[in-house]
Design a protein around this nucleic acid. Structure first.
Lengths: 212, 212
DNA sequence: ACTATATTGTGATGAATTTCACCAGGAACG
DNA sequence: CGTTCCTGGTGAAATTCATCACAATATAGT
């Protein structure tokens, strides 16, 4: 997928713009956005031009206008409702994660096979896995987080796809494939750490060489 | 950075190879690896060729050989020691995350400013933030996970960089910049969800159009 | 031993994405 | 009201990245 990075950058721009708006700012330049998002100014403008987002020469962008246009494109009309399957360490942490509220993400419920974890009165409630299809349909939910152990991840994913889930954010340390009806985004934390560590050591190596 | 994806794929290959080895397999073809990692076979071979990794025509790759070569390149000589700053929901979840052990990642300690969270006898232990520099130097640690709330993230990151941390995996919902001495990898879960949701809706839209 | 064949390794090709460069145009200021 | 000059928009260039195609060749089977 090619335009994925563009969308990711636009989403980050929106988050930045909302913060700037709260700070009372009215206008913003592509430089500012670029610095906040961590890319080049030209790329921000290019991303905007792809979707026809327009500003004012010499005047930058009006934050209000830009935000409403971005919301139209990215779809911020209603909160993004999400289910979580697997209420272990990671799952429960995400259920109570504060960062979601400000970004319009709402965790509707969690699910687990362990009777110990069930608690329908919690907020968000935790139901037995058997209730997944019912809640999903009742709440019209299309996106779910998978946070089960590795050995059950593939099986759970298959069930979620069968139920009609259209997008899975997978925290299990095994890459899932998805299918034509369901997109999968894998987040492998150990992999991220190893990747980071590789480039840290790489930097140290070249640094040493330059020091010599 | 361009070769980042290549390294990421090689890391995934290594993980797959280790599983295959545990299963008792001896040889593997680029097709197999490609399917397990989720890329094309040609790309796997191309990645290998960049680093001079070689197999046998018609014979595929000997898992043992390939693993030792990959370990040489990617550096699996010793476990990857990591500190966690911020022992809230996400931080504590990561401290006890089981997926790390199998991948050679070891959480050495956690840190927090809240006296309530301190527990030097836990495994891993949780120390007050004041001890960060001491533990980092004593254990020779270069990579840390940042899992504090958004408002303190930038400040904490600065302190970590001052202390000499070379890589930060940032879970705070605000992108951090890093610097010449420190790489930063941002993981914004809300952003990932929104990104996923965008393409889910996009798929539904084109699906509807095709249905008409 | 020998052949048929499956698989690797890689140069060439092509696509996608980012950067570059620069013009147009409107805001700011006198 | 006019000038200046900064900033956006965008086509072209460059770069990066992945795919393709195929010769080389070692293996498996006979």
């Amino acid at each position: 997928m090619s335009a994925k990075d563009t969308i990711s950058r636009l989403l980050r721009c929106r988050a930045v713009l909302e913060k700037l708006k709260l700070l009372g700012m009215v206008k913003v330049y592509s430089d500012n956005l670029a610095a906040a998002v961590g890319v080049s100014a030209a790329l921000v403008r290019k991303d905007f031009s792809i979707f026809g987002l327009t500003g004012h020469r010499r005047g930058g962008y009006r934050i209000d206008d830009l935000l409403s246009q971005l919301n139209r494109i990215l779809g911020r009309d209603q909160p993004l409702k999400v289910l979580i399957v697997g209420c272990g360490k990671i799952g429960t942490a995400l259920m109570n994660y504060r960062g979601f509220g400000t970004q319009g993400v709402r965790i509707i419920a969690g699910f687990d096979v362990d009777p110990e974890k069930i608690n329908p009165n919690a907020v968000p409630p935790v139901y037995p896995m058997d209730d997944f299809e019912r809640v999903m349909n009742a709440e019209q939910i299309r996106v779910a987080i998978l946070a089960t152990p590795e050995n059950t991840a593939a099986h759970v994913a298959e069930r979620m796809i069968m139920a009609g889930i259209r997008g899975i954010l997978n925290f299990a340390p095994i890459p899932l494939k998805g299918g034509p009806s369901c997109l999968v985004q894998n987040i492998d934390i150990a992999l991220e750490l190893e990747n980071l560590y590789y480039f840290v050591r790489l930097g140290e190596a070249t640094e040493e060489r330059r020091g010599k």
